[in-house]
Design a protein around this nucleic acid. Structure first.
Lengths: 155, 155
DNA sequence: AAATAATGTATTGTGCACAATCTAATCACG
DNA sequence: CGTGATTAGATTGTGCACAATACATTATTT
């Protein structure tokens, strides 16, 4: 299968669109999250914790990493900052001292109420119909799944 | 217009899909670009420079920033690293000493031949039909344009 | 011409991402 | 038990991103 310059064009255009759109979304969130004292990755961590907390669950660092596809090199300092801000607690498991369990403090739980107002504003800012956003989400998930699957597809 | 929890769901899912898909694409590029001694953002800069060089043009730092939506705080150190690797030249304009003009060295031009092989492999790795990728690109561009437009759309 | 403003880039500081390495704790097995 | 392998996090180092600031150069104003 030959790679043409047209391939190069589409691939590069798609890569840049993905790269730029993601940063544009983050940029739109930034001032809103700044009011909560959160960065965008911190917000994503909080979303996962809020969801788990609604079932009364705590999560390990590796659970968070699995959900967000982030490793300990990213999560450890991020979680320490959330802890310093009093939003989460980090405790070593008594059963297995290697494991660090992460849970929300009362302040962390309370922050959810303020965060509720944010997503609607962003959906609006995209100026795209919800059903197209659903389709977009599904396409991105499909690509994500493909890229995460092993298949380096020799040749 | 009320924001429901469903809104929160879609928005968060879309944000995460965008965030994760972008990083997954970058991760797929990484080993390929590593053979060229480039990072992903450096590769994007080189793409812009390769395109300009085909017309014999040099670009200012602000031109690169406009294309890639990056500011000098990101570009200056990135360009210095490309210069250290001998891929680009950075020269102050004689007419206006504030301006730094960026152009490709011979080594930088030669690297394009090696880079040609890369995009095809990535298109293949997505496992998605080209026409769907075109549609995805256009959706992302549309969102990007909306988010970059001023319209905070009061209320 | 002198003062002021605007422009283009550079610098500094914070916070991701991720590779590579390290450490400590658990597990597997003889 | 003890040895080695595995696992979960933490640490270190590099390179983006971006806000804020600084700096030098050019343009504008008076």
């Amino acid at each position: 299968m030959m790679a043409s310059d047209d391939d190069m064009g589409l691939d590069n255009q798609l890569c840049f669109a993905l790269y730029a759109a993601n940063r544009a979304v983050v940029a739109r969130y930034r001032p809103l999250l700044s009011e909560l004292g959160l960065t965008y990755p911190q917000y994503l961590v909080m979303l996962v914790l809020w969801e788990a907390a609604s079932d009364g669950r705590r999560l390990n660092v590796s659970d968070l990493g699995g959900r967000l596809r982030l490793d300990s090199g990213t999560l450890t300092p991020l979680l320490k900052r959330l802890q310093q801000r009093g939003l989460i607690s980090r405790t070593r498991s008594k059963e297995d001292e290697r494991i660090v369990s992460v849970g929300l403090t009362d302040a962390g739980k309370d922050l959810r109420a303020q965060a509720r107002a944010i997503p609607g504003q962003l959906l609006c800012a995209t100026g795209v119909a919800p059903e197209r956003l659903v389709a977009l989400r599904d396409e991105l998930r499909s690509i994500l799944a493909q890229l995460e699957s092993p298949a380096p597809n020799g040749q």
